[in-house]
Design a protein around this nucleic acid. Structure first.
Length: 255
DNA sequence: ACTAATGTTGTAGG
DNA sequence: GCCTACAACATTAG
């Protein structure tokens, strides 16, 4: 669920509460949530809250706190704890909870942010084309590789490829310059629209205020298998590609 | 009551 | 490099 647009929505909804405030105390409520000691966060001040791909990046007065949301993670401002609350940060003005049902998410305290690929909203078309040229993989799994581009997950990979009219199994290096430009445009368009609509709530994604997004109503192929394509009427198909459900229009996205 | 599926990342083996 | 399978975990759809 939480990909770039959802992470961006969480950042925007949480930033006004946390920036400039001090962490009074921190608790990790599950051993799985972090390899670090919660005590390392106590007394730190949050200089800024940002996004690194689909991860949340708290810049502290000393080091960084990175929140990976996994499949079901959420950051909630002044919410009531549940059995799935995995971490609690008490700030001088309120409480941040990290809830995560499946526990694929984590919190890392580190000296520097991780090195991932460029942000898809910042990269320009020619740089993306150059990066695509170098890779022989199928485009869909490549888009999911956070070291290639940071922030795209299963939903926005499928939605971007549909908008660009590119088959998910197409080899990255074989895309014509025109198609690479089209993919760049499609990725930025779909991510920007999704941010405008505050992300996709497919099952349980919510922002820091507990609000759902509504971009799921605008998905064109993701989980639309069996339905007619909005462009051509052909039946949307679902295949497995790299162990991930992959949705596309066999007519609009030719090999 | 089963089984398969789910948005994530990481590892192992070929 | 890249692909495949599988693991972590909980819930839900069929």
């Amino acid at each position: 669920m939480p990909e770039l647009p959802e992470a961006e929505t969480i950042v925007r909804s949480l930033r006004p509460y946390v920036e400039g405030h001090r962490i009074v105390s921190a608790e990790f409520l599950s051993a799985r949530v972090s390899k670090n000691k919660a005590a390392a966060l106590a007394g730190r001040r949050v200089k800024s809250l940002g996004r690194h791909g689909k991860q949340l990046l708290f810049e502290l007065d000393q080091g960084w706190m990175l929140v990976k949301l996994g499949m079901t993670g959420s950051l909630l401002w002044n919410a009531v704890a549940t059995p799935y609350t995995r971490a609690r940060l008490r700030l001088d003005n309120g409480v941040v909870l990290f809830d995560d049902v499946r526990q694929f998410g984590s919190i890392e305290v580190r000296e520097a942010p991780p090195e991932l690929g460029p942000d898809p909203l910042e990269i320009d078309a020619s740089e993306l084309a150059a990066r695509l040229k170098r890779r022989e993989r199928a485009i869909k799994p490549l888009l999911l590789d956070q070291k290639f581009l940071r922030g795209i997950g299963n939903i926005y990979a499928d939605e971007s490829l549909f908008r660009a009219g590119i088959h998910p199994k197409a080899k990255a290096c074989r895309l014509k310059p025109e198609r690479a430009r089209g993919l760049h445009r499609a990725i930025q368009e779909v991510l920007r629209e999704a941010i405008e609509h505050r992300g996709s709530s497919v099952s349980d994604y919510v922002d820091a205020s507990g609000e759902k997004g509504d971009f799921q109503a605008r998905h064109r192929v993701y989980q639309k298998q069996g339905e007619p394509c909005m462009n051509c009427g052909a039946e949307i198909r679902r295949i497995m590609l790299g162990q991930r459900g992959t949705h596309f229009c066999p007519n609009c996205q030719r090999r």
